[in-house]
Nucleic acid binder design. Sequence first.
DNA 1: CCCTTTTCACCTAGGTGGTAAGAT
DNA 2: ATCTTACCACCTAGGTGAAAAGGG
Lengths: 200, 200
Amino acid sequence: QVMLNNYPLWAKFHKHQTEMIITKQGRRMFPFLSFSLSGLNPVAHYSVCVDVVLVDQHHWRYQGGKWVQCGKAEGNMPGNRLYLHPDSPNTGAHWMRQEVSFGKLKLTNNKGAANNVGQMIVLQSLHKYQPRLHVTEVKEGEGEEGYPSPHTHTFAFPETQFIAVTAYQNADITQLKIDHNPFAKGFRDNFDSMYAASEG
Amino acid sequence: QVMLNNYPLWAKFHKHQTEMIITKQGRRMFPFLSFSLSGLNPVAHYSVCVDVVLVDQHHWRYQGGKWVQCGKAEGNMPGNRLYLHPDSPNTGAHWMRQEVSFGKLKLTNNKGAANNVGQMIVLQSLHKYQPRLHVTEVKEGEGEEGYPSPHTHTFAFPETQFIAVTAYQNADITQLKIDHNPFAKGFRDNFDSMYAASEG
DNA sequence: CCCTTTTCACCTAGGTGGTAAGAT
DNA sequence: ATCTTACCACCTAGGTGAAAAGGG
């Protein structure tokens, strides 16, 4: 009923333990979440959103080339952890017509950014997280859009788990980002050598 | 109840008879439509949209430095002329909180683009148009969003009238666009001379 | 002849990781 | 010592009018 798009890429990152940068002004995820939905009622209305929850109750530290647990996580986290898909609410037909992507979702460590509800997800650095997809049927007149209600279906793909960081720890992850994120093209080795080769 | 933002700029263009470029792939308006709404019920739901209607039934031609009428307009125009604000539907509080802008609205002469409903407004070159703002209270469960219903309020500002063109006719209009549209900065005279002056 | 389309250099706007400085 | 922030060069993505080419 729900498929994770770009699964092979997610799997490559997951094999090395995915890291996602968080900044004060907010940083996009890469890879970003994208799903294909099916089995909805084409004429019913749904809201679709993503939230991000702690996988465990530990700090993590990158030490000797490995991620290791280290002490307890801090108490209740302040800040928003829910991101409503900008198309919400919309019909089942709309959600099934094309992939449902969260390319503009941003992660931040700025607790004050909780004001921008629906803009950024507030996380804590060096904690491990699991993004989840929620598909909620909205019966018109049932209060505000978006927040998971009794009629919500929730989906979580372990391949999308990540550790929030303020700087990359594992060089393998850095290289995967550089190789696959178009905005990091400036850091690709092959980029210069393409032209260097054609000059000889 | 509705105010046209950036009125002084619109007035400057209007004094010279505003022109708006239309292209196959769609061209943004400049200036773009932006309104401030007040007097709505903060908890009621509204859809907000813009449409563009013919001002008269004539072709226009730019001749001898003046716009002159010239023959009858063509019959019924095919294609979409309605642009739903991307935030629609939303609460009165939302619409009143900040200006309601249509900066991404695009104008086209491509009749086949009528597929992209809500993306582009299809117009005919060398005809004079009046954009209109529609604010529709949406009672939940009343069919689809957006199209003006019996409970719609409509507003039209004569200062926003324009003639659709595929290339600018009046050099005064071209200069106003260059002077005020940030994306046309490359054509501003002052741009190079700023540096030239500081070299002496 | 008049109008439209295509292509271009030049911009705005903003997403990358690297790096060095700052904070604890 | 470890983690965070600010700034940077370098990229993607796409909005400008000019000018030349295309079309009826």
